[in-house]
Structures are given as C-alpha cells and as structure tokens.
Computed example of a mutant assay.
Amino acid sequence: MAKVISINISEIKGVIKTPINEGFFKEEHGLEGDGHAGKWHRQVSLLAQESIDKMIEFGVPDLTPGKFAENITTEGIVLHELPIGTRLKIGATIQEVTQIGKECHKGCAIKNEVGKCIMPTEGIFTRIIKSGIIRPGDTIEIM
C-alpha cells in the first residue's frame, strides 16, 4: 500500500524543507506557506523514500525526508513511472501529475549540501485539483 511518509515545507524554493505534522494543500496553489506553491504546474513536489534510499546506498549520509526539497515523501509507489495526467488521491486531496523530474537550478542548496540530487530523475510534480489536509501515514491511491 502506498502512503505518505512525511510532509515537508520551506518558505523559499531550492532549500531543504522541514517536516511538519500536517499540511493544508490548497486547490490550484499547493502547500500553504511553502515557497514552491503558486498558480503554476509545479505546485507540489513528491519524492519516494525508495529514491532517497538509493542515495543512502551510494554513501550519502544523513538523508531524511525534506532533504531533497520535496513537499511529500512517499513510500510504496514508483512515482517517476506515473504518466503525466495521472490523478492521485493523497489524504483528503486530489492531485494531478504535471511533470516528471526537473533540471536543478544553478547554486542548488540540495546539490551543494548532499552532493547529488535525485529529484531531476525521480521526483515528480503535481497540481492540486481538490484541497485538503495531508498527514504522514495517509494513503496514496491512483485514481
């Protein structure tokens, strides 16, 4: 069963995010209070714990949820294989996959601190179709 491991937030883009107990994900905006939110196609970023585990196996120490600036850390779902347009029910929200991977921007704090970033190949982005609260432990369903 796919589930949420962590909800992570930061006030600005491109920095490591801090885990929180729950997040309100607003329709056509993203995680309230997060620097990544706004009226665009990359409102929410997701990364699988399995992808983080790959980096740990490569010898990168101290990797915890939020270190790759993802809003939602997941488990039990291969995110980067989902087709664009896939709708996901995560907690009380409905989200639509809008992009797979991304190009790291110059001076990326994550790449500088961690040494390598897995978001460009295995992270995904969604937009919020239906608002709601998401908490760690909530299930993820492909609609």
Rank of each mutant, 00 (worst) to 15 (best):
G23F: 06
I142V: 14
P61V: 08
E11Y: 04
M55W: 14
S51H: 15
F24D: 00
T126A: 01
D62E: 11
K130S: 08
Q43W: 07
F24V: 03
K17S: 02
M119K: 05
G33I: 07
E57A: 13
C108P: 02
E22F: 12
E103R: 15
S10E: 01
K13R: 13
I128N: 11
K67C: 10
E141R: 08
A37F: 04
E50A: 00
T98A: 00
V44A: 03
P120E: 09
Q99R: 15
E141H: 12
N8S: 13
G101N: 10
I129M: 02
L79E: 03
G38L: 03
K13M: 06
G137S: 11
G59C: 01
L82C: 02
L82D: 08
R127M: 01
E11Q: 15
I72Q: 08
D138I: 04
S45G: 00
N71G: 10
E11H: 11
L47A: 05
F25P: 06
N21S: 00
K67W: 01
R42W: 06
A69V: 01
N71S: 07
Q99C: 06
W40I: 00
I128C: 10
P19N: 13
L63A: 09
D62Q: 09
E22W: 10
P136T: 09
I142R: 14
I90T: 02
E27A: 12
T73Q: 11
S131P: 13
G137M: 05
L63Y: 07
D62C: 14
I110F: 10
E81D: 15
I56E: 14
L88K: 11
P83M: 01
M143G: 02
Q49F: 07
